[in-house]
Amino acid sequence: MEFDGEFELDGVPPEKAWVVLSDPVAVRDSLKGCQYITPMDDSFEWDSFEPEEDVPTLPEAEADDVASRAFRTGQKYAALMQVGVGSVKPKFETTVTIDDRDEEDFEMTATGSGSASGSSFSMESGMRIHPQEDGDGSRIEWWTEADISGRIAQLGGRVINPVANKIVNNFFTSIESQMTDVEETDSGVTDRIRGMF
């Protein structure tokens, strides 16, 4: 199953978008149903893990913190993600590995997999941030190739597409509003963070 799309972030230049999209906390906050995204190693236990609460978010967060928690190439992350489709609300225990981050072209690729309620998925995703052709914002190109197995694939094939699109669109809309927050409150923070990469 392949999905792809584009999203325009008006008034948000690519480098700012890159900072926010590189922050697991910002991504978590923009992804509805996502309870945490955290670096994981082999000893990670889904049952016992408790995410840290009250983590400072952008734009208030300290630049050093944001820079140090930013996605790293080769790192594996654990994410707990609940997807709600009517009465069906599977909670996916998901692992994501950042395969590549291109700081110059603002391109990031990742692979992930997860399972819930007798279903599982694996995916290869990527995104690239382009400058807007007619404006000072960004155009985000994204793509995902996903393999889905189990009950959800058997019964839900016809809704996977619109639901995936909904999740992605909600995500970028939320990112956009976070960007606007950054802009409004402290326009200097992104430059500082950017300087640290």
Binding site: D147, I148, S149, G150, A153, Q154, L155, G157
Partner: peptide, 14 residues
């Protein structure tokens, strides 16, 4: 079946 081997005609809905 779909390409991933999921039975998409495996219940009386389908």
């Amino acid at each position: 079946y779909d390409d991933n081997g999921n039975v998409t005609g495996g219940d009386f809905m389908n």
